Simulated assay, not measured.
Amino acid sequence: MSEEELPEKISKLKEEKNAVILAHNYQIEPIQLTADYLGDSLGLARKSTELDADLVVFAGVDFMAETAAMLNPDKKILIPDTEAQCPMAAMLPAETVRKAKEEHSSAAVVLYVNTLAEARAEADVTCTSANSVQVVNALDEETILFGPDRNLAWHVEQNTDKEIIPIPEDGYCYVHRMFSPADIELLREENPDAEVLVHPEASPEVQKIADHICSTSQMLRRARESDAKKFIITTEVGLVSRLRRELPDKEFLPALDEGICEQMKEHTMEKIYQSLRDEKYVVEVSTEIAEEARKATERMLEISK
């Protein structure tokens, strides 16, 4: 089947099966254009609970599809490629969280949603890059175990009076670790009128030279609302495609052309078609883990309303 035929074939299958496609901002442009809803982790988690659908195809990485499965036990959640696994999420197994809780029994556990379900089942509440500061500051506890992203933990630390203990000690996103102050300063020199938008998964050194620290959804909002006409985007390049498409009168420069998440890019239009056609691969989370992890996720959604 040709690439040109796939959007129509996918559309027909969606109608036949009462299905929707959710896609993260880091997906390739054809998938972004085919998705019913495009967004960040928090936006897609919320959207999944509002859908009157039987099937949800999740074009994102494993932990995102797990979130949708936990929040929607009555829906069949599919991920087009099981190799779309977030390396950072794998850095925090549930056992590491349990051990940290034993060592810091009075601390609250706040886990980034970029964490697998079995670890999130050990959390008091989850958060996203968009609401991490809000979630931490809403808690009564003065000590917070925060994982798995060390750089996001640093960002929270700058915006709270609470003690933040990162778990693991050095969890990270390999894409956001690629960005360097030197690359951004060079771009800024060449484009002095550009605003620098930096994702909080980037290193503290990069965050310090940002004009604004933003999640992907916050970058979209800032770009829409700002008077600036040019932006240096310091996150995965997939977001640049969306920004250029939705705001054609503004200019968007990726901080690094090589800032690509290989796992996000496992999904293709062909795989989405096959996923819908064959109803594969079903995302399943055990009832016990789902129940505990759901509580932490629902508490996040309540705090961040």
Rank of each mutant, 00 (worst) to 15 (best):
L22R: 06
I31K: 02
S241G: 05
E284C: 04
S129W: 04
R242W: 06
A90N: 13
L247S: 05
L139C: 10
N25S: 13
T82Q: 11
K12C: 00
E163G: 01
I232K: 04
K305T: 11
D249E: 15
E95M: 04
P148G: 08
Q85S: 13
A138N: 12
K305H: 08
G39V: 07
K162S: 05
E103K: 15
D149H: 02
S129T: 12
D249T: 14
R46T: 11
L256G: 05
A123L: 10
S304I: 10
P166K: 10
A107S: 14
A202S: 15
L78K: 04
E5S: 14
A138Y: 09
Q158F: 01
T49P: 09
N131Q: 06
N72V: 08
L13M: 06
N18I: 09
N159G: 06
Q32A: 12
R245E: 10
L197K: 07
N137G: 12
V61N: 04
V56H: 04
L239F: 01
D193I: 07
A107D: 06
D278I: 02
E201R: 07
D211P: 09
R242C: 01
K305Y: 01
R242F: 01
Y174N: 14
R177V: 07
L38N: 06
A194V: 09
N72G: 03
A53Y: 05
R177K: 15
S217E: 14
Q207W: 00
E102M: 09
I28S: 13
C127Q: 08
V56E: 06
E16R: 14
E5I: 05
P73T: 09
Q158L: 13
P166L: 08
E95R: 13
E8Q: 14
K99H: 05
S105Y: 01
